[in-house]
Design a protein around this nucleic acid. Structure first.
Length: 468
RNA sequence: GGCCCCAUCGUCUAGUGGCCUAGGACACCACCCUCUCAAGGUGGCGGCACGGGUUCGAAUCCCGUUGGGGCUGCCA
């Protein structure tokens, strides 16, 4: 098993979990599962400003929500890049000793000034042969060899870079700390990573990393650069502009299975005519070679549709259980008025009517409010019907002594409706508004049945009173 | 500017030279069902960026154009 592939996911902790990162993690996880390989989590925390212990827990929690279980035998880590700093520096020094790196005392300002002078871009290799020996204020730069670098990529094929278009990049900062490129490669070597699957934005870095692997005496891993996720403007999803936090979707009632399934269909599709497929099938079918080459728009509407499908596919028990937290957290009614048994009765009525769990409370609030919140527009619209008062009055009278189930309740109104030459769609409206406060909602007669006779009659009468 | 990547309905995709008068999904529209709203069912709208090749035959291969995107830091 020593040749089982080792995949890795290497996020930098930034305080929230990016949906793009989630997809990359899922790709790596699916691959590790199918190949009998390992998923290594490494937190790239070498930038002080991106380092906070709770961020790390956030990553673990987010992965776990996505079904990437840190206790699975397929999972390894988390490792922390910051803890390997000594290794990174040692590798850099080895590179210097071997002549693959050299010291440079140019400041960023000086580099810019030189570039302006020569009319060229970036650092020009000024210190290559100056024989500097290091010390305060000097950075260590990699000596990019002549020739070209060919990156063999599982999704993109061979990508060729002319080495003279790659400047001698910094390995060690002037304060002696290692840069990301170096740290990343040294860690990957150290952790025996065989497959690097990451977002396309890293592709331009790849020739540099490949040169590092080789200079350090190792064969480069198998690369795969998957397309980035973009917004409606076709720009890379960004924290500032876009809704990218996985946690936010979780809070809004997106189901993990829906998110997982949706994310996997961005840039890839399972065989057949349906995109809604269980994770087990994704694991069986997912291949990097089949991943699309172009950026994919993260479409919240389609995500919502997937979520609706997943909600409807749940058993009633599962739906009730999944709704419990949002119900408990809801501010829609005084918490002591909530009744789990009542909700359980209403649950089948709401399950087909919500797309996210967060919509559940608004669907049943009239059951838990002392008085339903009357929507004014709904009221004026429905109560302006000339039969409104009469239907309310007659219905209240009839149901006072009728059998208490939705079929009889419906039959009562149907009889009344026919006798008045009207349509049930019309006559139910005033009753619905008086009882629930709105023109839309779960089926009326079922709702009334659950609400109970006394409360229904009370609301009907208070509606009549409100009519004046 | 330089380097690199990409290009099938509005969006996500199927498609790897003939099965394509291009299939599915989301969105949208219509109809059916129906106590409202959903769900469900049926149907519709809508696409191979453009121009050259190669080939008996091109969405599929090649070149160019155009258009998008990414990277370009002593961030990761």
């Amino acid at each position: 098993m020593s040749d089982a592939p080792r995949y890795r996911f290497a996020p930098s902790p930034t305080g929230f979990f990016h949906v793009g990162g989630a997809r990359t993690a899922l790709y790596n996880w699916a691959l590790a599962l199918r190949t009998g390989g390992t998923f290594v989590l490494r937190v790239e925390d070498t930038d002080e400003s991106r380092n906070s212990p709770e961020w790390t827990q956030g990553i673990i929690d987010a992965l776990s929500w996505l079904g990437i279980d840190s206790k699975s035998p397929r999972f390894e880590g988390p490792y922390f890049q910051s803890q390997n700093a000594e290794l990174h520096v040692a590798a850099a020094l080895r590179l210097f000793d071997a002549g693959n790196a050299y010291w440079c005392d140019l400041t960023p300002d000086q580099i810019q000034a030189r570039a302006k002078e020569t009319g060229k871009q970036g650092y020009d290799g000024y210190s290559r042969d100056r024989g500097l020996t290091g010390g305060p204020g000097q950075v260590l730069r990699f000596r990019v060899p002549a020739g070209k670098t060919i990156v063999t990529d599982l999704v993109r094929g061979d990508v060729e870079f002319a080495n003279d278009t790659i400047e001698d990049f910094v390995l060690l900062r002037s304060n002696g700390s290692p840069m990301f490129l170096l740290a990343n490669v040294v860690d990957d070597i150290e952790m025996k990573i065989t497959n690097v699957v990451r977002a396309e934005e890293h592709l331009p870095n790849t020739p540099k990393q490949q040169m590092l692997w080789e200079a350090l005496g190792h064969a480069a891993p198998i690369w795969a650069h998957v397309p980035v996720l973009v917004n409606e403007q076709r720009k890379k999803l960004s924290k500032r502009r876009d809704k990218v936090a996985l946690e936010q979707y979780r809070e809004e009632g997106i189901l993990p299975d829906a998110m997982i399934n949706y994310l996997m269909t961005l840039g890839w599709a399972p065989a057949g005519d349906t995109e809604i497929v269980p994770w087990s099938r994704i694991v069986d079918e997912f291949r990097l070679e089949d991943v699309n080459h172009s950026p994919a728009f993260f479409d919240i509407k389609k995500l919502a549709s997937f979520n609706g499908d997943y909600i409807r596919a749940m058993t009633l028990e599962a739906f009730i259980e999944a709704s419990a937290p949002v119900l408990a957290a809801s501010q829609a009614w005084p918490s002591d008025r909530f009744n789990a048994q009542v909700f359980a009765q209403a649950a089948p009525l709401v399950q087909t009517r919500v797309v996210t769990l967060s919509e559940v409370p608004a669907m049943v609030d009239f059951l838990f409010l002392a008085d339903p919140a009357i929507d004014e527009d709904a009221w004026t619209k429905t109560m302006s019907a000339d039969f409104a008062r009469e239907v309310l009055t007659d219905f209240a009278t009839s149901v006072a002594t009728s059998e208490w189930n939705h079929d009889s309740l419906k039959a009562i109104l149907e009889t009344w409706t026919e006798a008045h030459g009207l349509k049930l769609g019309k006559t139910q409206a005033p009753i619905r508004v008086a009882v629930t406060g709105r023109t839309v909602g779960p089926p009326l007669f079922e709702s009334i049945e659950i609400l109970g006779r006394d409360e229904t009659i009370r609301r009907l009468n208070s509606g009549i009173a409100r009519l004046g």
